[in-house]
Amino acid sequence: MPDKAFKLKVGLAEMLKGGVIMDVTNADQARIAEEAGAVAVMALERIPADIRADGGVARMSNPKMIREIQKAVSIPVMAKCRIGHFAEAQVLESLGIDFIDESEVLTPADEDNHIWKHDFKIPFVCGCRNLGEALRRVAEGAAMIRTKGEAGSGNIVEAVRHMRRVQAEIKHAGTLDNHEVVAYAKNLGAPLDLVQYVREHGKLPVPNFAAGGVATPADASLMMQLGAETVFVGSGIFKSSDPEQRAKAIVTATTHYNDPDVVCKASESLGEAMPGLEISAIPENELLQKRGW
């Protein structure tokens, strides 16, 4: 599959593995994130918890604010565009952003179509809730997949659900014979060649990261143990009472996710985590994970 352009895109995703990508809304937060050991920052105007609280249409961030963040740090800078809004993606490419998140956190611009991401030199990351969705995004050119989780909820349950589902479907693909794989691809709504890749290799063709609801070092460790290769933390850091300490603690816990003593030590002396939301308390039509298909 990999042509040169795609290899470069997936290559950058490989470099981010084992790290933490943090949502930041200004240059000061970006510096705090870099200082804490983030492998990249996601530049956006409002973190998901505030987007959820404020309502209204959430769009791509102001390029001026993105530029300030790019100047403030030496690590890669990511930014979000609306699902299907390829003109926003073109603007982000023109800014020289390092990774574009075609994200359900923003208000979708197209309810039928995602962006044809192969047209861009910049790599894309997209969210998913299951294997079919993940492979449709890869077919469109995504170089990294993440769980959708439920952004801005401070509740890990949806990210766990999505990661478990993807891993279970990957495992199931591995059990299929040649006769069965076409029907499985049809049921997933995913291209046959990508389902065959998953069956053969036992993993997605691109790195698989976790996002949506990570608030504590143990949340990060949980997602890594469930098979995530890197963790996105959105509202969890700058909605907590101690962003600097918490950011550091989540970085340490992500690297040493399989060493409970280290995760324990990282969790000590932290203040209040962000307040969380019970998923059932969120009205169905306000669930961000339902955006995209």
Binding site: G18, G19, E34, G37, A38, K248, T255
Partner: peptide
């Protein structure tokens, strides 16, 4: 390969 800033911080932190 990866992020040199992150690696150096983790080396010192651990």
């Amino acid at each position: 390969g990866g992020e040199s800033t992150t690696m150096l911080k983790l080396i010192d932190r651990m």
